[in-house]
């Protein structure tokens, strides 16, 4: 059995791309017609496909990913990011495009899990702080944002603003050390087998 080591993530210092839309669903992040691949790679090519390109494949100049001045490893997004379909391809697409963190005032549950399972950090901040981040990036697209996973803080040094964010202690260990959930579960096989034995005569298990 091979132990899977993932990329370790401890600190992100980067400019950000501001996407003000609320309720961004995973069908927008990666439309279903691009889910036909059987590997995890390459989905970044079609990220936000129908917002980024017109039907003839020409870039739509007003969409923020097509603005030449915006770049970076952090996506700033409106409330309720990642709602809808459970497709993990959405997290893969964001990672593949080069994002290491998504910052929003609210995330949909399944997306949040999927992101954490791919070392893509979902950073939930207060709505007020999110507005400060949007304002700082709109004022100066070169604004650097610092996300410290260990300290659980997100800050903008040039603006002297900072906020703490939550991350589950288990997931924090995984992300900082590149640990993998499946390896953890496989280490618990004796417990799982014991559980199965105990419940042998239980009808919810049949």
């Amino acid at each position: 059995m091979k132990i899977m080591q993932k990329q370790k993530l401890t600190k992100i210092i980067s400019t950000a791309i501001p996407l003000r839309m609320e309720n961004v669903d995973t069908d927008q992040i990666i439309p279903a017609r691009f889910l036909k691949a059987t590997t995890r790679e390459g989905f970044g090519l079609n990220i936000f496909r129908d917002w980024r390109y017109d039907p003839d494949g020409n870039p739509k100049p007003h969409f923020v990913l097509n603005h030449p001045q915006y770049a970076g490893e952090i996506l700033l997004a409106g409330h309720n990011f990642g709602c809808g379909s459970s497709r993990e391809h959405a997290a893969w697409a964001l990672s593949d495009y080069g994002f290491k963190a998504v910052v929003s005032s609210f995330f949909a549950d399944i997306f949040k899990n999927n992101a954490l399972n791919n070392s893509l950090l979902p950073v939930q901040v207060t709505p007020d702080f999110l507005q400060l981040l949007f304002a700082a990036v709109h004022e100066n697209h070169k604004t650097k944002i610092v996300i410290d996973v260990d300290k659980q803080t997100i800050s903008v040094p040039s603006k002297k603003i900072s906020e703490a964010f939550d991350i589950n202690p288990y997931k924090k260990i995984c992300i900082m050390n590149g640990y993998d959930d499946v390896d953890y579960l496989l280490s618990l096989k004796p417990e799982i087998e014991e559980f199965e034995k105990k419940r042998k005569n239980d009808y919810s298990l049949s």
């Binding site: 993990e88 399944i110 999927n114 959930d181 199965e196």
Partner: peptide
């Protein structure tokens, strides 16, 4: 509903890591 990493968890261990909603 779950993501593909979680599908792998279930195939590998018939269990899944979840926070109680």
């Amino acid at each position: 509903g779950i993501g593909t990493s979680e599908v792998e968890q279930v195939l590998a261990s018939q269990s899944i890591l979840q926070y109680k909603p």
